[in-house]
Structure formats: structure tokens, C-alpha cells
Design a protein around this nucleic acid. Structure first.
Lengths: 275, 275
DNA sequence: GTGTTTATTTCGGGG
DNA sequence: CCCCGAAGTAAACAC
């Protein structure tokens, strides 16, 4: 499966259906010129480039920061994303969201090569001084499929719209979904069995004080003209504080147990369920 | 600089002060047993393990999802973080936050090895079926320094506390910082030149409708006892809709131009500024 | 632990 | 483009 590649590199082949293709090329202890070439060519040609290096970082833009030298994993994507990961933590310590322009300036003489990312709106930049590059890897990744997600707020909306009486209360009718008002977007505008209008705000997770605020904001508009309008905060659960705040405002909490992630045990489905 | 390693692997040395140390070990086209060993040993011994592979992913927990096979970069950290990155986008398509237990089950016969991460509270899991592993890399990263950040909301608070008259208005006095109330935490509680109390909510970025809600919530408490209490939303900018909402409620917007990231051009400081 | 808020939030949808 | 709101938000911090 060996494929000819530039001397000094290590190439691995993929078992692609259409024959052997070099998918990953790895450059051990590359010099500055090699780093610049691999990053430049790789990103231009649509590959993901990962760098394991000891580096020093400067960021300035929406905030500013400095990170003294240490070992990090740097990931560059062809869409202009740059991520710097430390050995722990979910979030990168520094990053640039997609859309940035990434380039490498090979350092002069003994200088560290500089990985530089810049973008505008907002104006910001990231400088990664690659003091000691252990390894660079070019990954020509092909990944076209779409991620399929379920259990989102959109699904909860669909459920409520399809089963308002089960989800909310007997006799309720949905009049509008995602209604735009002067104060923002209502999730639902409904009418109860007595014909009283109901403003409905839906949350997929435990409802917070901010969610209560949001419902209250929407209510203002309707209470002026009709003091009897009802307001419902619909969620799998909420805190006592939020319940009290709702009660004080004459608003209601509607528990949607069907969507409670804690009671609904992780289902351990197998891949066959998806096929 | 060569260091003896297991046959079939590629090892790169770091120029560490205390002598040659294998920092990165790379395993091209590893079999399932090698993947299991490298991930297991690596994570246990505190290394970051990166995998370039064609894989298929299942997630279930707070939401649920499925991603059909494609080429992705998988990063495993010793703190139990797992990230799956596609060739574009800032956020991983799937992940597990720190604290998860990560293990690899070598697939039987021709089965793909399974990278499995699980955690509780909330209960969730991630399954990564490594159908075609192009390369695995073990990175014994040493990174102890702390990230230094500036331009945070905390700094904005310090500025306001130190220069309330410049930041807010002439004659104003800060009485309390981070005051706890029944309805949450006020950023500042102040008093204007006439002795009227002022509730101050500070945002580092453009203020949103939600921020307006928050200020309004804090105001309720004080308006009961003193209808003349003033409310200020302090931010570098905000939308017209928020300004109108504030006006309708008798609240004020205070623009803090000093912290506007758009007007304050990225400063292009050099590393010497930090030393 | 739970509750609340921030974030270099990122992301997507609609006007 | 901006505005607005969701997110498997994660992380920090108070209680």
C-alpha cells in the first residue's frame, strides 16, 4: 500500500474503495520551512493540519491573552478554524473561529516559526510561536455526511404543536408558532378552553430565571390590552426559585416529563436502531 | 536523538532541558489491539492521544445523535475529555466533557475497534466506531503555565469601580459591588448626585434583550420600596430594540466606548510587551 | 452537589 | 449584513 511521498515524511494509506490514497502524512521534528510548507499547502488543498509542539501564544481581539511556552496540540482546518488545545479541558485555551486567514512565517535563523491567524469583524488575531515542533500531520479528510440529532428544542415544539392537550392542558388550542412581537419571538400563542389567550415559552432543559424573565417580557405586550392573558413556562423541570417567581407574577409552570433527560435513562441503543 | 521504542512505531524526540525524551509517538495504520493499547496506556499515563480515522458515531444523553462514517480527528485527553472534529467548524461535532471514562474495546475479527466514553450526571455516552484508523499519536505533553487574560468583564468592573464618574455619570458613587439580592446578583449598587439609588448592570459586549430582562428583574425589588430608583445597563453598545425597551421601562443605557472592541483596533502588541 | 451567570461563547435562522 | 435566541453549551463561582 506504499505510495511515493517526499523524502523524510511518513505516509499512511487508507483502504478507500477507489484504491490506495494517502490520507495522512506525518512529518517528524520538521524544520521551520517544512512546517510552513505543510500548513500552507495542506490548508490550501483542503486538509486538516495538526501540530504537536511546544509553543507560546498571544491573542488580541475581543479579549486579550498570553500563554507562556508549553506543549499543546494545534489544529488548523481549511475553513480558517484554528484550535490550541492543552492536555486537559474541553475548550481550546486559544482559538480562531472559522473564516480566519491562517499562515505560517518560517522564523529566521533560530527563530520559531510563527503560526498566525487573523480575521475581521471583529478584528482579532492569534499568534502561535512554534518553539519546538515535535510533529506535523496533514490529514486529507473526506467527510460529507450530515449529523443527525434528536431531542432538540425544535422536536419539543413539534410535539407540543401536535399534542397541545397532552403537553399543556385540556381544551387548549395553538393559534400561532414563533410569533414575532415587539418584544421578541413567542414560542406559541394559544387559547384555552374558555377562550383566554395563552403565551407559551418552551425550554428543552430545566427552566432558569432568565427564561422566566423572557416569558415575563412577552407578557407585557398582552397584559396591557387584556389583563386576563395567561403565561406558561413549559419545561421538563425548574428550580423552586423560578416556580416562586412565576407564582408571584401570576404565571404558570407546566412540567413536560416526557423530555426529562434524568428520568429518561440513556437508552443504550445500538447502531442497528439507526439503519 | 533516537530513543528505543516498540517496533513498527515512529518516535520523535523533544529537545527538553533534562535530555532526550520521547514526547510524540506515532503509530501508522495501527491494528485494533494497538489502538486499544496506545489509548489505554496513553490516557492512564497522562498523555494526549489523537486519532485520525474514518469513523461512525453514536451519542446519547442530553440529546442524541448519529453521524455516518467519515474522516475525523479524534482527540482524547487524560482528564476524560473526548473531542471529535470534522474538517470544518470550530466546535467538535461530538464530544464528552472532562470527567468521562474513556476506553477502547478492540473489535473482534474484522470489527472496528470501539472508542467508548461514558459519564454520569447527566448520564450520557459516546461511541466512536473506528472503522479505518489512519494514524494514532501519543503526545506526552507538559504544560503547567497559567493562561493570562485581560479585557474580561472583571476588568470592566474594576474600571467602573475606580472611575465611576468617567464611566457612568458625574457625581455618582458606588455603594456596593456584586450585591446579592433575592432576585440574583447586582453588578453595582450606586447613588447619584441627588442621592437617588442606582442599580447598575454591566455587560462587556453588546447588550441584549436578555440583559435588559436581567436589569428589569433586579429593579423590581427596589421599586417596591422606592419608585424613584434608577436602572442603568452599561455596555459598549446595544441594539435599538434594547434601547427602546429600556426607555419604555424608564431605564437607561450607558455606552462605555472604552471597551468597544470595534473602535479599539486590535493593538498588535508584541511579545516584549508581556515580559 | 444545585443554582446562577458569563463567554474571545459558536451556531443557525430570519429580516 | 444585523438581530435574536438555542446549545448535548462549558466553566466559574456562590451557596
Amino acid at each position: 500500500m506504499a505510495v511515493p511521498v517526499a523524502p523524510g515524511t511518513v505516509a499512511f494509506c487508507a483502504r478507500h474503495g477507489y484504491g490506495a490514497v494517502v490520507t495522512v502524512e506525518r512529518f517528524p521534528s520538521p524544520d521551520a520551512a517544512t512546517v510552513a510548507r505543510v500548513v500552507g499547502d495542506g490548508l490550501r488543498e483542503g486538509a486538516v493540519v495538526s501540530i504537536e509542539a511546544n509553543c507560546e501564544i498571544e491573542y488580541d481581539g475581543r479579549s486579550g491573552g498570553y500563554l507562556a511556552p508549553g506543549d499543546r496540540l494545534v489544529v488548523c482546518k481549511p475553513d480558517g478554524t484554528l484550535l490550541v488545545h492543552r492536555p486537559s479541558g474541553h475548550k481550546p485555551v486559544n482559538w480562531m473561529p472559522g473564516g480566519a486567514t491562517i499562515k505560517v512565517e518560517p522564523g529566521e535563523d533560530d527563530d520559531a516559526p510563527l503560526l498566525y491567524a487573523r480575521r475581521s469583524n471583529p478584528n482579532e488575531f492569534l499568534r502561535v510561536y512554534l518553539g519546538d515542533v515535535y510533529s506535523v500531520s496533514r490529514f486529507d479528510a473526506t467527510d460529507a455526511v450530515e449529523y443527525q440529532e434528536h431531542g432538540t428544542e425544535a422536536e419539543m415544539h413539534e410535539y407540543i404543536e401536535a399534542n397541545p392537550e397532552d403537553a399543556l392542558e385540556d381544551g387548549i388550542r395553538i393559534l400561532e408558532h414563533e410569533r414575532e412581537t415587539q418584544y421578541g419571538y413567542l414560542d406559541f400563542f394559544a387559547q384555552d378552553a374558555e377562550g383566554t389567550p395563552v403565551v407559551v415559552e418552551v425550554k428543552r432543559r430545566q427552566a432558569t430565571l432568565n427564561n422566566f424573565d423572557q416569558l415575563k417580557r412577552y407578557m407585557e405586550l398582552y397584559r396591557e390590552s387584556n389583563p386576563d392573558v395567561r403565561g406558561m413556562l413549559v419545561a421538563p423541570s425548574t428550580s423552586d426559585r423560578v416556580k416562586r417567581a412565576l407564582r408571584d407574577e401570576g404565571l404558570e409552570f407546566v412540567r413536560l416529563a416526557e423530555f426529562d433527560v434524568e428520568t429518561r435513562e440513556a437508552s443504550e441503543t445500538t447502531l442497528t436502531d439507526f439503519s
